[in-house]
């Protein structure tokens, strides 16, 4: 029994969620490979941002793709779908 969770008197009513899922670092699920952006090839088309199922891709200040490894599960969709071959799956 987790002692960090509230008792029944403190819990919000009706079973509403009371924490955002950003607490869950799904990046820990990666099985040996992670996507790495080759900035020289990335044109900032954001296809990887659109197609990432985990909201783990964004565009950095330079307008280049950026991986949030806290949440990236390493599925590899971004690497496969990048029209410019700018993302590579690399052993961790």
């Amino acid at each position: 029994m987790s002692s960090s969770l509230p008792g029944w008197k403190e819990l919000p009513m009706g079973g509403v969620a009371f924490r955002p899922s950003t607490d869950i670092k799904t990046g820990e699920w990666r099985l040996g490979f992670r996507p790495v952006v080759k900035e020289e090839k990335c044109v900032g088309c954001a296809m990887c941002v659109v197609l990432c199922p985990d909201m783990a891709m964004g565009l950095g200040e330079e307008g280049k793709a950026q991986v949030n490894y806290d949440y990236c599960k390493g599925c590899g969709i971004c690497a496969r779908e990048c029209p410019y071959g700018a993302i590579e799956m690399v052993p961790e």
Partner: peptide
Amino acid sequence: PLSMGTFAMYDLYFEYKRQ
């Protein structure tokens, strides 16, 4: 926003029933 009708495991379900 609220998320209503969520999923509870054995670590929380009982407390809601007590409520």
